[in-house]
Write a protein that binds this DNA or RNA. Structure first.
Lengths: 332, 332
DNA sequence: TTGTACGCGTTATCAA
DNA sequence: TTGATAACGCGTACAA
């Protein structure tokens, strides 16, 4: 018992489309008697408004897109779900649907295409690299509403974790627990987050009067194998570190493995702290001390921000940083 | 330099909309000279067809929906990304976009709503429980094209891993490596997968002439804490098991922890095998032997199957099972 | 080979 | 309070 259009309903009830539309939209300008009659029919007739017709006529789009470039998946897969949760929640609350796109690498033209063809009303770009950030200019020209998630630029509203602070508190924790020779395992070049964590690391060292030693910095490219290699290198130094801050948890795991393999103990001989608080941290042996990013919250705010800028476009962009949280477990 | 409709383009070129539409659709019935002229303009004018107008006119929808009930996220989060990858790939290949919905619990009405309102052309339902499977009848009545992913019913095409075989090879591996007293840590009631894995477990025992002992079966509800409790219980038996097959990796981790905490070694004293091959397995200490489901492939096929049934609806449904693979690491 | 004109199912303006 | 009617932008049967 379902009816395919307002028109059909209207004919059945001998009432104009417009009036039915009014009751559907809760418009008050309808006689109670008429409203009742329509509602009763609506109950048993099951009418589903055609979204395309509505969008076409109203020029409104209740869909936002979430873009995951696949080449960054290596770093984002573990929080993709939390991201989706946060964005979906904001969407639900505002009656927006969520469309997900995974691109092999960030593709600005495709983004413009999706917007211009009215597929989406705006886009959330997840963890695009510094290079990709340049391409935002193009999107801006086309007035595509955009929110950056875990990426930063002055060409779009940006949402992320205060990674510098995170790097600071991680390093500070190592210092506070008595470590004097603290190494840093760096992530990718051109990656905002690792860069900021590195700055926090250096700042903490400086604030506490510890020297910054370039030989205590190795690249691990966010991968645990590379972090293990980096760690072996660090351990073979004349004066090996007694604390390691890895720019993400995956690398912390690699570091811990390397330390163990070298016959040393974590945290007694070398303390290791990570970043991200991925699920494995809690289950690992030893449980990994790390820095937590409130991914769901950040994503929720990014989506809310996007919806906001869809409804009231602005030219002046902002960056919103969320506080990271130290999670102390056993590895440091 | 962008033009908002075919109409506008047509006026600029003094050519009818219909002809432009023809070159856009690669229709051959266009004079080469005309085609060239149009293409040249298209280059600089940047025209993006309005998707809603197209859908409205053609009655075709190039969007499929992927539904994740949140109450099952505890078991699905780790493969959600792989699922999205597989589905997105199938979509890309067929020019379909992907829309994602996370429902707090499976909501058939909302599914019907999305289909009837033309938001999506079909749906992939991920890991809905046996109970929810009942609600499919309603979707069928409304002729919603549906593919079940990691769930099974004779009311819709179903795609998943051959969990019984998986349970069989996991148990068989324990037996083959000399274990005689093999326990099973069960998942949730009403969960297809755990049930099937359990059947495989029993089958393997039977085939190898080992007795099935009800006291060797404990529920772990897919959670690692509960699995740890279950394991403690198992270890306190008069004749404790020397091998444990946990219905998922999360529980395998709990089991391993409990075994270690009891002062025993894995795998020497108790071998532990899991299921799913989640990322942590490889990184865990010891690395966890488990059974891998080809999640991306299964998802890809589910999506392809859905697209297929959108284009040629069928009343007779099928179930397609994919082969699991034993991944031997150190825990068993 | 090209073009006309109607239909798709809404929204929204304006008049009754 | 209600109802014609014109958009919205594209697809397509049919005609030229």
């Amino acid at each position: 018992m379902s009816v395919k259009s307002l028109e059909e309903l209207a004919r059945k009830l001998n009432i104009s489309r417009r009036t039915i539309s009014r009751v559907l939209k809760n418009d008050k300008n309808v006689a109670e008697e008429t409203r009742g009659r329509i509602l009763k029919h609506l109950d048993k007739e099951k009418y589903f408004p055609n979204i395309h017709a509505a969008s076409l006529a109203s020029k409104k789009i209740n869909v936002i897109g979430l873009i995951f470039p696949r080449d960054t998946f290596i770093n984002t897969d573990f929080f993709a779900i939390d991201t989706i949760k946060g964005v979906a929640r904001a969407g639900d609350e505002n009656n927006y649907q969520l469309m997900i796109f995974t691109q092999s690498k960030f593709d600005g033209d495709q983004c413009i295409q999706m917007y211009k063809s009215k597929l989406v009303g705006g886009l959330i770009l997840v963890a695009i690299s510094k290079d990709d950030t340049e391409k935002l200019e193009e999107l801006r020209k086309h007035e595509v509403p955009v929110a950056l998630l875990f990426a930063y630029s002055d060409r779009a509203d940006s949402f992320g974790c205060d990674n510098r602070k995170g790097g600071y508190i991680a390093t500070k924790h190592l210092i506070d627990t008595g470590r004097k020779r603290i190494a840093f395992i760096h992530g990718h070049e051109n990656w905002f987050d690792a860069e900021e964590r590195f700055k926090g690391y250096k700042q903490a060292l400086a604030d506490c009067g510890l020297p910054f030693r370039p030989d205590y910095v190795e690249r691990g490219y966010f991968r645990y194998e590379d972090a293990a290699i980096a760690t072996r290198k660090l351990l073979s130094l004349d004066s090996p570190p007694d604390g390691i801050f890895a720019a993400n948890d995956r690398m912390a795991i690699g570091a811990i493995k390397a330390v163990k393999d070298a016959g040393k103990r974590v945290p007694e001989d070398v303390a290791v702290i990570g970043f991200d608080n991925i699920p494995i941290c809690e289950l690992f042996d030893p449980p990994i001390t790390t820095v937590d990013q409130p991914v769901v919250d950040i994503s929720y705010e990014a989506a809310s921000g996007l919806l906001n800028s869809i409804n009231s476009p602005h030219k002046k962009f902002f960056t919103r940083l969320f506080d990271p949280k130290l999670i102390i477990r056993k590895s440091a």
